[in-house]
Each structure stands twice: as structure tokens, then as C-alpha cells.
Design a protein around this nucleic acid. Sequence first.
DNA 1: TTTTATTAATCAAACGTTTGTTTAGTAAAA
DNA 2: TTTTACTAAACAAACGTTTGATTAATAAAA
Lengths: 214, 214
Amino acid sequence: MEYNAKQLQIIEVAERLFSQKGFAGTSVRDIAQEADVNVSMISYYFGSKEKLIEALFQLRMTESRSRLETLVMTSELSALQKFNMFIDSVIDRLMGNQCFHNIMLREQLSSERTPVISEFIRSLKFRNVELIQRMLREGQEAGDFKKDINVSLVTTTLYGTVNYAIATQDFYKMINGLDHMSDQEFQAHLRQELSQHLKNLFKSTITNEHHIQN
Amino acid sequence: MEYNAKQLQIIEVAERLFSQKGFAGTSVRDIAQEADVNVSMISYYFGSKEKLIEALFQLRMTESRSRLETLVMTSELSALQKFNMFIDSVIDRLMGNQCFHNIMLREQLSSERTPVISEFIRSLKFRNVELIQRMLREGQEAGDFKKDINVSLVTTTLYGTVNYAIATQDFYKMINGLDHMSDQEFQAHLRQELSQHLKNLFKSTITNEHHIQN
DNA sequence: TTTTATTAATCAAACGTTTGTTTAGTAAAA
DNA sequence: TTTTACTAAACAAACGTTTGATTAATAAAA
């Protein structure tokens, strides 16, 4: 699906407002006003409010068909290096699309989900778990990784940590006395800290550390 | 504040529905119907829908004034044992009050928050970070824990992992082929797996492991 | 004891607003 | 001319809240 400038404007405003106030908490008039279009344009272009959020998911999820998958799987890096690359890519993807991932997380918290969106999310999550699965297996076969890794929980910690860090970033900023930083500075700082924290966390957990040799 | 049976019934139904459909996505008529009371009783008892969710927070957060804090801080367990106890208590608290913590997580995802609820959450989070801070320091002073631990990120991983595991438990169940389990069985299973996963994760990250001595 | 006030709990109905969507029409582009 | 882009206005439905009446229970006064 191709969207013109006005359609994209509506989608982007909707994304921001859904992220800030939730889907049910955002009215089509809110969106229309902020996007500077007539209310009826939303029905005109997308059919309904529901279809609008589906269009948003469609758009954002086709965008994220990352080259990372092949890059990570084919390169000659060590399993740990690949895994670390993946950690950074998750941080970048989530922090670079905070609004959308906020909406996605909210959607996962709901029990009354739209089937279309549910399926979007499920397939995306499945892709991610499979990718991690393969990466961990490769490390295991190379003898670098432990044998008894719970792939689901490793995934859960990775995404759970990044999601929660983004959700509570104001608190993080406050409690670490980082108020002097500009927003851009802080985002970069958080990214870096998260990266180091997660790599460190997983390294000692999933690798067979050969202390004697080192 | 003391609540009679009918008031508690309203609060409990509201908690479940807010958790399932979000605050804005739940109408007072939904609540009234499921709680089997007249719509006007909600305004009558609580003043407004907004005040109802505030009452819910008030109730649930005064309930959770846990004895754990003193218990964990005064006992003669090792720092790591205390930390492991704390991990289990977090898992128990979050899994034992999934609806409420779902609402709380949603609230943290919103930028248009109620000041009252925002303050509730902030103070609770502050209490938790402080507790963890003290626990980690104790371990550091005893020489058991590393010196360069990022308390905020350790907290983020702990709560982030448990929250995300609960939010995506259906996916976890599916992907691990655990559909044969009863709900109760699965809850117990997830609790156990999470406990082991997190303890393992943190042990190797925050402790000075003395491999040679072991 | 009987009667009269006072109270809290409850209800159906109605209130005014906001909701998402549709309609009927206009202007511009093809 | 036909199609596309766009609008103001209108629509019914749903929203949170208020109203006014009724009930039941308790306390005060007769």
C-alpha cells in the first residue's frame, strides 16, 4: 500500500497520540485536529479508526523487514558477537520507534485484541524468537554457549528490559540525576548503558566462560 | 478508607476490566453490568470513574506495605540470599496481582497521566529502587558483589522481565508447547522458571565469582 | 408504643457531551 | 465529463454524570 503525504501525516499523528493516550483514549477528532485535516478524512482514507491503526501496523512492520536477519546469520562473526549485534539492533529498533513499540506493548497487555493486529505481533515475535534460537544454537554447536539456555526467557529479558527502560525513562533520568542532559544526549546515554548492561548480563549467563584459559 | 462489600465488588470488577481493556476502553456501564449494580452507584460511591481508579490504586498500594522490607533488611542471610528472596517476592507480587500490575504498567506507558496515580507509582518505584540499592551495597561491603553495578538497570531488568513475561504468557505457553497444562499448573511453572532464570542471570552478573575456590 | 424525621442505598430515566461514521455537496484534477 | 480530494453538517450511538423518586432501616419525638 502506498500512502500520499496527507495519509502519512494522519498515520504519524495517530501513532504519536495512540502512544501517548492509548487507542481508546484518542478520538478521531484529536487526530484530525493535530494532523490539520478534516475529521471525515480518516474514514475517507482508511475506512475507520480501527482500520487506521491496522494501516499503522502494516506500515511499520513491513518497514522493519531488517537486513539484519541475513547479515547476522551469514557473517563470519562469532556467536557471541552476533548475539551482541542483535542486542544493539533490538535497542536501536525499539528506541528509534518508541511510539510504535509503545503501542505494540499496550496491545500485548490487552485481552480484547484485534485479530489482525494480534497476528501481526505474533508473527513478529515468532520471527524474533526463531532468530535468537538459531543464534544460540550456533553458539552451542561451536561450544561457546551453554547447553541449558531457555530461549524464551532470554528473549523475554531482552525485550522486557528494553521496553521497560523506555517506558520508565523519566524515572531513570530523575533517579540518576541526569536532568541536565538534553533529550538527545539522554537517549544516546540510555542506549549506551542498556547495551553495556545487556551484553554483560547475557555474556556471563549464556557463555561457557573459560576462566582458567583467560 | 473502608469499603463495604458492594464497593469492593465494584473495585474488583473495575480492576479486571481496566486490565483487560484499559481505562478509556472500559465504560462505567461495563463495570456496573459485570458488578451487577446500577450505573449511578459508581458516581454515588466514588464520585467519578477517575476517582474509582484512584481508589483502586489507594487500596492495592496500601495492601502491599510488605513485611518483606524489614524481613529482608534485618535477617542474617547473605546478600545474595536476600537478593534471591527479593526476586521471588517480586515474581510473587506481580504474578499474584496480574490485573493490578497490568494497569500500573499501562499507566506508565501513558504520557497523559493522572497526577495522583503518577505519584503513587513514583513513590512505589522509589521504595523498590532504594531497597535494591541497600541490598546491593550490603553485598558490596561484604565483598560478595561487584562494585560497578548499575542499580537502575538491574531493577529495570528484574521488573521488565517479570512484567513482560506476564504480558506475553500466552505466547510463552504456545511456543513452549505447554498447552496441556491447566492454568494453575502453568502459572506455577512460569513462576518457577522465572525464578531460576533471574537468579541465574543476576548471580553471574553482580557477584564476584570465585571460580578457583569453588 | 406509635408516630415522625432522618439517613443511606438503590433505581430508572434523563442530561448534555463526545464518540465514530455518513451524507450531501463543492472544488479541483484528469 | 468523470473522478478524485475535500468539507461542513448531520447522524445515531455511547459516554460519564445527575436527577428525582422509592425503599428500608434507624433514631427521635410524641
